[in-house]
Design a protein around this nucleic acid. Sequence first.
DNA 1: CTCCAACACGGGTATATACACCTTCCATGG
DNA 2: CCATGGAAGGTGTATATACCCGTGTTGGAG
Lengths: 125, 125
Amino acid sequence: MLRSATRKIGSVYDRALAPLGINIAQYSLLRSVERLQPVSLTELARTAELDRSTIGRNVRVLERLGLVALERGEDDHREAAVNLTARGAETLDVAGPLWEDCQRSIETQLGPVRVTALQEILRVI
Amino acid sequence: MLRSATRKIGSVYDRALAPLGINIAQYSLLRSVERLQPVSLTELARTAELDRSTIGRNVRVLERLGLVALERGEDDHREAAVNLTARGAETLDVAGPLWEDCQRSIETQLGPVRVTALQEILRVI
DNA sequence: CTCCAACACGGGTATATACACCTTCCATGG
DNA sequence: CCATGGAAGGTGTATATACCCGTGTTGGAG
């Protein structure tokens, strides 16, 4: 049931972000890049608690969309240095309000008591 | 955060079910088949609130694992009739206790108040 | 200075998931 | 009785995700 609920809620965000051509996972990752840039794939993976290879592939998708740029680390030539592009930053600017509308809408449907409870649960997990 | 939490909890179930060679999605689907058999792909999709094509592919995996059998519907030759195999039923018998141990362990970690709250939230979504 | 263990990525493989489109089959109106 | 619309599946494509293993780089032990 948790998985099903997450899928359903995710699809609401996906539909909201669809006009921008990105989905919820890409939005999340883009925000992480924004917050940590320049950032290595390993650090992104640690932050998002995702497998490194997953991050690598997802970042490549964002790169193909022109939303992030990948360079080699200056010091450590093993590392990638991921940064937002101008287009990536613009996308986040537009996506932010859409995201928040979505969030508000869902929170309204849930009601304040359940929202607080859910936040507390997610903090513990 | 919801997605991340779901991934984390899912991986706990995945590890618990790993000795049986199935994951949480497969376990879920297998339980649906058990409950509804003989069942069409469309009905499984409706029940699980998943795309029909997703169900089709996931059922094919279970079939390859020898846990379900697919036949053509007797009346309507478009329909598939999915049934558990003996091996599928055995797998569920063994998986049930593992699943419940997992559930209990997670509920213990969350605490009874949050468990109740979460159940209520999932019911609403 | 050299060599090796540890680290960062990349690619292979497999599953889960969705959407769009195609084929086949059924059921019904004319 | 037949044509056609709609239902059931299947396939192509794309992304998300994880695990395993290979390659190349770094940094530190000796």
